[in-house]
Simulated scan of single mutants.
Amino acid sequence: MTLEPEPARRQLAGKVASLIGTAESMQLAVPGLTIYRHAAPTEAYSSTYQPSIALVAQGRKQVDLGQSRFVYDESHFLLTSLDLPVTSRVIQASAGRPYLCVRLAFDMAMVRELLAQGGLPAARGQPGALAMTLGQTTAPLLDAFGRLLDLQQAPGDIAFLGELLAREIIYRVLQSADGARLRAIATLGEHGQRTAAVVDWIRQHYARPLRLDELAGMAAMGQSTLHRHFRALTSMTPLQYQKQLRLHGARRLMLTEGWDASSAAFEVGYESASQFNREYSRFFGRSPMRDVKALRRPEGG
């Protein structure tokens, strides 16, 4: 029997609503699986999206990555292939019809394993695109997510069936035109994969001074080539990417660890507290002190 997208979407929305109740986010027992609910549009919130797929069962959300904007809804999922600092907000939600979303974080080792097995159709689409893109939500994808949510009621099946369903979801993404970038990032030797390794290095060492010649050597590319591929993947230069990671890192220290602004600034690599305050206020829209006092919001899907 052929599945139709609309009934599958309604079923998924019902399952998310039943599980989450009135909470805004909930991490489920399946590894990497989180659901979200908002009963009204939200303010812009800055966070880092990890490699994942976010599927909206109801409502609409906007994500800004550098100068690029993505709006995903009941017909389109958001695919993220790298750790990317973004600003996002729910733009369509109400008490009667809340925003409902499910996000599955990718196990990149599983992605590479599926690619190594072969048998996938040839990749379509543009391989040089951003590491974030929109894809068409299909009934089989909605159904797979629904079955993944069902495991919350059968915890004994999660260890076996959870991995199988995650593999099915990744497979369906990889065989679509929108999965071309995920393929390139996961494939050894590709420019995308080598650039992704540099992105990952900066993410892990963002407090260190950045030297473009060292990064280019790491990627086995010329500096201008790396710069071009880095911007193509992230919509940012390496320095812009590092700065956003530093600001996110400092914000996390202040909000969750109780650090003062100056200590957090120096910890993430800033040498000037005044420069940190200026850049923080420009990026987040308010001073560190005001931001810490603001209502905390969960990282969204």
Rank of each mutant, 00 (worst) to 15 (best):
M236R: 13
G32R: 12
G156V: 02
A109M: 12
H227V: 03
P7G: 01
E163H: 15
R181W: 01
I169S: 04
A109I: 03
Y270A: 00
E271H: 10
E299W: 00
D200R: 04
Y49E: 10
L28G: 04
R228I: 00
L65H: 05
V86T: 04
R208C: 09
A216R: 07
T137H: 06
L142F: 06
L188M: 05
Y49F: 10
E24Q: 11
T133H: 08
L82T: 05
A197P: 02
W259H: 13
A23F: 08
I158T: 11
P85R: 01
V111K: 01
L233Y: 01
Y99G: 06
L100P: 00
V90C: 02
A17F: 00
G96N: 05
Q136C: 15
A131R: 02
T42P: 03
D200F: 00
A129W: 08
A54C: 14
L120D: 04
Y49Q: 04
A8R: 15
G189E: 07
R286K: 13
A197W: 02
V86H: 05
Q240G: 13
P298L: 10
A261T: 01
R103N: 11
G14S: 07
R290W: 02
T80Y: 09
L142S: 04
S287C: 07
F70R: 03
K293L: 11
R231G: 11
Y241F: 10
I170A: 05
R282H: 14
L239M: 10
G21D: 07
L215E: 07
A123E: 06
Q153G: 14
G135P: 14
Q117V: 12
D291K: 08
K15W: 03
R228N: 08
G146C: 13
L245N: 00
G301D: 12
F283M: 05
Q204M: 08
G32A: 09
Y280C: 06
A29Q: 15
Q175H: 07
T195V: 06
E6I: 10
G119D: 14
M1D: 12
L141H: 08
G162Y: 11
T2C: 02
E4M: 06
G125R: 01
L84G: 05
R37H: 08
L33C: 04
A265E: 00
I185W: 11
D178W: 08
E163I: 11
R183Y: 05
E74I: 10
V199C: 11
A105H: 09
Q153L: 08
K61F: 01
A29T: 06
Q244A: 08
D260A: 12
L55K: 01
R282W: 00
A219H: 03
S46L: 06
D200Y: 03
A216S: 07
L82S: 01
Y36A: 03
F283T: 03
G217M: 12
A139P: 13
S25H: 12
M26F: 11
L55R: 09
E267R: 12
R290Q: 15
